[in-house]
Amino acid sequence: MNVYIPVLIALGFGVALGSILSGLAHFMGPRNPRPEKNDPYECGVPKVTGATEKMSVKFYLTAILFILFDIETIFLYLWAKAFPQLGWFGVIEVMVFMTILVVGYIYVVKRGALEWD
């Protein structure tokens, strides 16, 4: 049997379960909307501004750095799988790779990209 048939079954079930829960919320309970009730929660006071205003640029920076470092991690997985076949050549190659990665990492730290104040 193709190994991806169970993946499709699981995907279908997961989406169905989420949709059922989401739908139950929508159709089972009572509905008595009032303007005060529908206000976004802000500790009981009327809301002052919209929600999607300015946010810290640090979050964008974190996301960008994540993409860089996560790709290295995935690459290392494949290297780890091929490790017995590669031998010492693989070890030395990964050392070179790590050196470049660490230089980049030190640059990121020195520029203060990881500082949260």
């Binding site: 309970g29 509905r31 529908n38």
Partner: peptide, 8 residues
């Protein structure tokens, strides 16, 4: 499940 759903 039987609670009211409040969409903001």
């Amino acid at each position: 499940i039987f609670k009211e759903e409040v969409v903001p």
